[in-house]
Design a protein around this nucleic acid. Structure first.
Length: 335
DNA sequence: ACTCTGCCTCAAGACGAG
DNA sequence: TTGAGGCAGAGT
DNA sequence: CTCGTCC
């Protein structure tokens, strides 16, 4: 009716999702991408995977970060306007949830490990729904499994292709690992590759066009050392300069905003606020259990592993050959 | 033996009643 | 729509 | 689990 249509989907998303996380012992820290407004919002959902932070049980309990941008594509083309962002921030403020605005929150996957995140949780986004168990990648174990030190690991990741440098074509997981192992460090690897390339060029000159694109070519401009420094000395704003405290929610403020202004159901809002204050004040003993579906519906092949300290999943170097006759049921139906 | 590219599939909200 | 993972087939 | 509401 008079209610302003279905606005505030974004607020609902933030509100309920945040409560849900808090209930499960996760203290979210929202990271807003301080990018031009145009950047499609949908992309941001990907950032969900960004929440790789260290969510140990009670241990490091304090540090938990979550990058997230809610919006969903509800009713198609839901643009995240500046207003939406501002409202979200306002909401978070009232909820007592900290947030920061950054420029380029980099990566996902491996990169986070190179930034020394002790633990990386992958597939958080869709693991619940699908069979994929949430994988927990432990940095120490990964290093152990790869038998390399942090420096080498970082270099390996750079070789594999990070977000800051062009990947070197022709070098995949296998070669990268092999190269690093053989040469010990990226510098030597690059040198090696360049020599090879140079040799080829000479050959090409003499022979006048043989196999011009022989092998792996390292771009002329490939400042991997800088990239490495960046990984080792991440960025600009030291964690200490960022204030991240989870305070009690401003209940009346929330009511005013969500109920009065946005037409939310007051009971729900208050109920949610209760949960927030309750869990934020309590020593959160919660853990990820319960936040995720811990039971595989049809019991696939492996046990689940929502637990921690399980396996140190190695990165790419572990390929399994899976034959499994082609289940080619591809239908070429296009729309 | 590896790597790359293209194609297909999946999911993107939460909660509660029945 | 978008992005990500999985797979198959081609290319080096 | 499916479905309808929330706003």
């Amino acid at each position: 009716m008079g209610i302003k249509g279905l606005t505030s989907l974004h607020l609902m998303g933030f509100f309920y999702r945040t409560i849900r996380m808090v209930e499960n012992g996760i203290k979210p820290l929202y990271v807003f991408d301080g990018k031009p407004p145009e950047l499609k919002a949908g992309v941001l959902s990907k950032r969900l995977a960004l929440r790789k932070e260290a969510q140990e049980e009670g241990e490091e309990a304090k540090e938990t970060g979550t990058a997230e941008d809610v919006d969903r594509f509800a009713r198609r083309t839901v643009k995240v306007t500046r207003e939406h962002n501002e409202e979200c921030r306002r909401l978070l403020g009232l909820m007592g949830i900290p947030f920061v605005v950054v420029y380029a929150a980099g990566s996902e996957d491996m990169d986070t490990l190179t930034f020394h995140a002790p633990v990386l949780l992958r597939h958080l986004t869709f693991s619940e729904a699908r069979k994929t168990p949430i994988s927990e990648i432990n940095l120490d174990k990964a290093l152990e499994g790869l038998e390399m030190n942090m420096s080498q690991f970082i270099e390996l990741c750079i070789l594999l292709g990070c977000d800051y440098l062009e990947p070197i074509k022709g070098v995949g997981p296998k070669s990268a690992l092999k190269l690093i192992r053989e040469h010990g460090n990226l510098g030597a690897v690059i040198e090696h590759l360049r020599e090879k390339t140079a040799a080829k060029e000479d050959a090409a000159k003499d022979e006048d066009g043989k196999k011009k694109k022989g092998g792996i070519v390292v771009p002329e401009e490939w400042p991997w050392e800088e990239a490495k420094k960046f990984f080792e000395h991440p960025d600009v704003t030291p964690a200490k300069d960022v204030e991240v405290d989870w305070t009690s929610p401003d209940v009346e403020g929330l009511v005013q905003f969500l109920v009065t202004e946005k037409g939310f159901n007051e009971d729900r809002v208050r109920k949610g606020a209760d949960k927030l204050s309750k869990f934020l004040n309590t020593k959160q003993q919660g853990r990820l259990d319960g936040f995720f579906t811990a039971k595989p519906k049809t019991e696939p092949k492996k046990g689940k592993e929502t637990e921690k300290g399980k396996k140190g999943t190695k990165r790419k170097a572990d390929d399994k050959d899976k034959k499994d006759a082609g289940s080619s049921k591809k239908s070429k139906t296009k729309k």
